[in-house]
Nucleic acid binder design. Sequence first.
DNA 1: CTGTTAGCGCGTTCAG
DNA 2: CTGAACGCGCTAACAG
Lengths: 363, 363
Amino acid sequence: MAKNGGPIRGADAHQGRPVTIQAVAKAAGVSTATVSRVMTGNSSVRADLAARVRQVADELGYRPNPAAQRLASGVSETIGVVVPNLANPYFYDVIKAMNTAAAAQGYQMLIADSNEDPDQELPLSRSLLRQADGLVLLSPRMPVASLRVLAQDAAPVLMVNRVVVGVGLPTVAVDNHSAMLEICGHLAMLGHRRVVYLAGPEHSWQNTERQRAADQSPAFGLQLTSVTAGSTIGAGHAAVDRALELKPTALVCFNDLVAFGALARLQELGLRVPDDVSLTGFDDIPFSGYASPPLTTAVSPQLALGQRAWQVIHQMIDGKEPDDTPLLKAEVVIRHSTAAPSVCGHVASPQPDLTGQTGVAAG
Amino acid sequence: MAKNGGPIRGADAHQGRPVTIQAVAKAAGVSTATVSRVMTGNSSVRADLAARVRQVADELGYRPNPAAQRLASGVSETIGVVVPNLANPYFYDVIKAMNTAAAAQGYQMLIADSNEDPDQELPLSRSLLRQADGLVLLSPRMPVASLRVLAQDAAPVLMVNRVVVGVGLPTVAVDNHSAMLEICGHLAMLGHRRVVYLAGPEHSWQNTERQRAADQSPAFGLQLTSVTAGSTIGAGHAAVDRALELKPTALVCFNDLVAFGALARLQELGLRVPDDVSLTGFDDIPFSGYASPPLTTAVSPQLALGQRAWQVIHQMIDGKEPDDTPLLKAEVVIRHSTAAPSVCGHVASPQPDLTGQTGVAAG
DNA sequence: CTGTTAGCGCGTTCAG
DNA sequence: CTGAACGCGCTAACAG
């Protein structure tokens, strides 16, 4: 009389008690092992028996308890994702792509937001790793020592958009450096000289790479100075005034969000883009093409990145050695926020309604 | 000799075997029950004993297995979230707010994207509900029958931004109707007459509410027609041409994303906002204030909504009857995308550089 | 206050 | 191919 079906002891006696594998087994006149085999589909069961079990399970509305499955098998079909800022369109486009790919294979996503706090990342990561089959770190800002801790757990951990040699973590990343080089080259070709870079978050590898390219721009004849901004619209907005003190003819922004903020501030100041100041972003978030003027930026391939990230982490979970991914290429797309600098410097005098684009050749 | 510590049988023999509660118990010379009590902090344990256990646990790096905890206790400290589109900034801000509130109390978030497919929502919901302590449905599109199925599971399920009477689901929502009424009133006061509403997704309650308000606008003297758009930038972009056939002086958009798309299309067409056509959005996503012109829109309070949603679902999980939440108010914010209609209809002739805002009174 | 003992629901050997 | 039995790691009675 011990285990007779409905142990009425929880609060949910009326109809909420979930159907267990035992209930199905009894109703189908088989053992729980057989039900388990049918449900997982791993072992083989005689066809008619399997059909009967399946039908009974359906009728009873049986759905395995994930916690029990996890405990018994050690598999959760879940991946953890740590992201610095859940409210950045760049990240969530990557997440969406990953999620789509993962969902297609029955995996779900446990997401944690570190709020741009590098010290939060390790604890969050370890916590997720305890519940998920694998972990994806999006643009992690944590110190290398922390990465190392994660790496030696020997669990499937993938870094996206951060490259660190010597830590044994597989990586999928975009080639920020060469795209930023192209952006600088584009500006130089347009005739710009005094340019300022509105830099991103301190611990961001992407910023490091973009900054590195920016620092090389003297090779194109650019005099580039950096001003700290950040990764948000607000940061871009706030950094413009400091940047303008340097009398630049172009502003190169860490990302599109910063460019958005900068654009707004410039317009508040009565400066026109690109007539008075050229402006570039990075990432090509969906809004950038629709801004006015549409932003010149680099298409950081969110979709491909997300898909590739899933592929790699999936392989790792399956115990395969992941294929090495070369850096993904970021295409620079020239839109209307960049043009040749005006002859009279960044504070332009009132001008006729020229549509930009083919402005005055600069000296 | 059965359970002697490190059962070397899995593949991870060297150093990857997690420390179990038993290991801690043995090392501390207490029973597993005591360790459990110390870790959960529910029951009381003699102070010195507790301290010893804690220290041993720390030294061993013990961290409880969540699956086992879940199985034994029935609690996962996880909430599930179903969202129609993981790539919509509006949802993200709500999710981020919820996540922040939830994380502060040790809860995590399992997120599923239904990709605007109403039929995906029920299976996703049931799956999440099996693993989480509660479920939050963001702007669910699923049919009422499905909601009813979820409701009778007697599990904690909360709807956000959808109000359905008669289904027993608690709800947190924004008052879309009155805000939209205000938007229409604002346009009427400016002197607009021919207005078209770029409508949102068919199964969206928010669209229903906004549409309902729009349909009442004849009371203000507006002649409003609706054109189906959707909820994305692309949808707004695509709907403009159809809308313009009606020669409107203003476009009222389902949300800011649609407004963004519409704005871009209008500009491609050489129409100026607001000089030639006024434009309104809804939600006030972070980009709207930075668009050019900045969008007149309604501030759908994402932060408050997310916080409130967490409060309510948390109460439900704790078995309390949730407080009834009145509709949250959405403030209309007038920015620069709306102005009085130009006297000569929507295809304006070249005009002097008037700054908009206080334009000509219309007939 | 503490230890002993059952399970939680399922996957998985191991016999048959 | 199938069933019996064990154990995943932990919490929650129940005794003491």
